[in-house]
Nucleic acid binder design. Sequence first.
DNA 1: TATGTCTGATTGTCTGTCAATGCGCGGCGG
DNA 2: CCGCCGCGCATTGACAGACAATCAGACATA
Lengths: 240, 240
Amino acid sequence: MPDDSLQITPQPVRRQVEERLREAIITSRFMPGEHLSDRMLCDLFGVSRGVIREAVRLLEAEGLVIVVPNRGPFVAYLSAAEATQVYEVRGVLEALAGHGFAERASTEEVAELRAVFEEIAATRPGADRMALLTLKRRFYDVLLRGCRNSYVARMLDQLLNRNSQLRATTLSDPTRLPHTVEEIRRIVEAVERRDAEGAWQACRDHVAQAARVALRILNERAATGGPAPARRPAARRRAG
Amino acid sequence: MPDDSLQITPQPVRRQVEERLREAIITSRFMPGEHLSDRMLCDLFGVSRGVIREAVRLLEAEGLVIVVPNRGPFVAYLSAAEATQVYEVRGVLEALAGHGFAERASTEEVAELRAVFEEIAATRPGADRMALLTLKRRFYDVLLRGCRNSYVARMLDQLLNRNSQLRATTLSDPTRLPHTVEEIRRIVEAVERRDAEGAWQACRDHVAQAARVALRILNERAATGGPAPARRPAARRRAG
DNA sequence: TATGTCTGATTGTCTGTCAATGCGCGGCGG
DNA sequence: CCGCCGCGCATTGACAGACAATCAGACATA
């Protein structure tokens, strides 16, 4: 069986724009509600309108941007109600991923998961929130690769991108960190025991706890009138 | 609260092309592996290349078409291994949808679900496979609307589209039909009892049974060298 | 047979153009 | 002073034409 690792695929410009734009959105370089005018993106990336428009379609399908007719694309905004839904779905998908990982991951992948976990566990409170998010992201990368289910991987990936902003704030909560570490430890240990059911439960619990914290933060923000993202496109009522 | 039901949203041409193309793929008017040359689609729909290309991006993100660089889009092909993965994910998502429906659907929606179920139950073996698929599709439409989780709805919708071809064959299996009806009955009855856990289980079981039948059929096809879809784009090895 | 080359067709991308739509601004009247 | 109306400008949606890069298949050659 030939090795695929050396295979190269030509990357169209559209693909690069897509990736950079996605990255820019999930790292909050574009704020939720912000208008992504295509001219502006043309100047920004130095490509033609067609390429921009095609790249935006991809992100539209992923739910990262919403396109309102005749007004163009806007960075998607996640309401508290939607966040609840996202965590609900994330719970079952992550559980399924953990289940599959415990059943089907190679021993190398299990070791890799453990390694990333140790890095997370070694993080001291006060670390850069982006660094922590990146680390957690690597944990998920291993998990999604080892679960041997590309559909779970793709969908969970989308969900994680979708609420990355919220995750960044919950992850960086210093009181939350030790709990997070313990929850992830349970996942890793279940996986090492090849205990699929245990991994399922550990994942569900982890997401449930994350959801609890996230929704608390969202409610606090709503109560204190905190940093609510601009919702400029709300001028006219539109179905959605 | 003003009624949204009369709200209209301008539908760009791109949107219409997207919907028709999706429909054409789901209903097997384009066969898996078929090449969707953009010129051909231009002539077919009578629109410009830009519109076609943007519409294809949407379907690409949904996984309905795969785009190989410098060769264009092809109708996605579902291997047996991928089908297994799809059913795995569908199981948990459908369970979550059933769970949410039992908890949150209005009594009208419950009645609606029951009504669609009665239509399915009244179907006699030998009915048109497309008619049955449409009916089942309506069942899911009600389920996904009533579960009050647009993310489950979108993802499950994608998965159902993704393997609609396979579902058409399993649904139309005459020996399978009575079992299908019984499985769905369990879902409806659990929902009517507002038994979220029961609905969860009933949905999981239903998908598990469907998966069993589907994979059996796939294996039979593979064994008898049956109607394997054209896989023309396999000429050159490319990373996936 | 295996290798190298050529050619036609298709994709990826850019540019320019035009109609339709939405937003903001200023004028007008009360 | 405030609210309403209408106009102009900027942007989006869609089209057509063009060109380089790439690919598949036929062809020629050793």
